[in-house]
Design a protein around this nucleic acid. Structure first.
Lengths: 255, 255
DNA sequence: GCAACGCATTGATTTACATCAATCCATCGG
DNA sequence: CCGATGGATTGATGTAAATCAATGCGTTGC
């Protein structure tokens, strides 16, 4: 994390409609790859300032970039790849609290230390801001603050769903919920238009730590779903949804 | 919920220092009972406007006031009592995602329907705002938006802790964590200065639904802690912490 | 080519917690 | 006063998922 090039407009900046106003502007494709990210609430004239504040960071698979409990110095906006966020107990038990996809914000801490750790699942690109810069930006761009509040609210809803899952759902219901969530999340990189075909970037261990299960239970549950004709488990990290309806029924607890 | 008097300054408004600036102002004690609530980020001159927008609501014990999935029409700020927030599965399984103490905000939904239900544990007083009024207030008072962002961040941290608890902690660790959290939360109403003496307003069933356990397991675990000399279980909802250190060790997973 | 490694799958066994069940006790309404 | 009710406790039993264990399999490095 030492040689980070400045975040600049890429050669072919994207022209994006801002909100519902119809106004269009060019955006730094690095930190505005999605309509959910930082930049698209800031007027074109201010983009240069933002680009100056952001530092592009590339994190290789498996590398941690936020350490739980460490001083919270930076604020991240994921632009590509998937990161896992987690908390751990002293004896090594670990709970993944979420997977951060492109557009997600990380490190919005009130306290001055990170409440969770973060590690790249596959190769992650992110825009990094120092907290000071971020504070300045927040002061100058109220819409940015609104965007963050909206994002935080959405994460809160997701967290509540996950609490229901962890506290009250069975293993089968958890895995079904997970597969459907991943499918709905727009499936990170499914180039062939294959409907229902998922590429899960994370290992069984990650899935287990996310669902509060063990690797073996996740594996067995996927095998059971395969035996039921609900999914196909391909080589590597590929999974094909064959019966989304039945998975839905399962996930909702109507089993 | 039909006869709600307008939220006005009470007869003896409180003089509170705003932030670190040293400025003092009188506050509506109804919606600013705590330095964490809505009103204390708004200048005194604007208090009348806020008081006009807010409607005081009194909710009796056991009464639900937010229904999961219903249109999100209102925004609440708890001013006294404790509410439970929960999500449920169709077959009745229920997960309490949090207890809302005085000062907490409720109903900050991006979607137009509530993502969770809410019910009064004991008698709850709350300031209620329509979402329209709330949107206006947010536009006019940027500091309020910042306050909400801060609050949402804190809730997110709490949610992550709860996910770790639900996904990876044992029953004993869960109960220990819960008791310590309740103790740290400033213990809602412990009039006698008795240190470590808790009045838990919620039933064993609520605790179980919060911790992802059953009533029986919660009860057995408390009995075990009593047998270990860690706590005293009094009549009604009273619990006395006798060995916070040992509970801490347990809660952290160092058992 | 073939160890060595990480990850996944599958089977056998154990266990923490749920479920089922009985009792107790405080509160409440008649 | 006393049956009814709802919450809490405690005991007996069941079970879903964890743990322990073995095998397979693709990738990496020599």
């Amino acid at each position: 994390m030492s040689d980070m090039p400045s975040c600049q407009f890429e050669s072919r900046p994207r022209r994006i409609v801002i909100g519902s106003s119809g106004v269009q502007a060019d955006f730094c494709a690095t930190c505005a790859v999605r309509p959910t990210s930082v930049c698209n609430v800031i007027a074109q004239a201010d983009m240069a300032r933002l680009a100056e504040a952001a530092v592009e960071t590339i994190i290789p698979p498996g590398r941690g970039f936020i350490e739980e409990g460490a001083p919270a110095t930076d604020f991240f906006n994921i632009t590509s790849g998937t990161a896992k966020l987690f908390k751990a107990l002293p004896d090594g038990r670990r709970q993944i609290t979420g997977f951060a996809a492109p557009g997600h914000f990380l490190g919005l801490a009130v306290s001055d230390s990170y409440a969770f750790g973060a590690e790249a699942v596959d190769t992650v690109r992110a825009c990094r801001f120092s907290r000071e810069k971020m504070a300045e930006l927040l002061d100058d761009f109220p819409r940015l603050e609104r965007r963050l509040l909206e994002e935080a609210s959405n994460e809160l809803v997701a967290a509540q769903n996950q609490m229901l899952l962890l506290g009250r759902k069975t293993a089968r219901e958890r895995v079904a919920s997970f597969l459907l969530d991943q499918m709905r999340a727009g499936m990170p990189l499914d180039q062939n238009g294959q409907r229902g075909s998922l590429h899960l970037p994370m290992t069984r261990g990650d899935i287990a730590d996310y669902l509060g299960l063990t690797i073996e239970t996740v594996s067995r549950t996927l095998s059971w779903m395969r035996s039921q004709g609900m999914i196909d488990v391909g080589k590597g990290y590929a999974i094909t949804i064959r019966a989304a309806g039945r998975l839905d029924t399962l996930a909702a607890g109507n089993s």
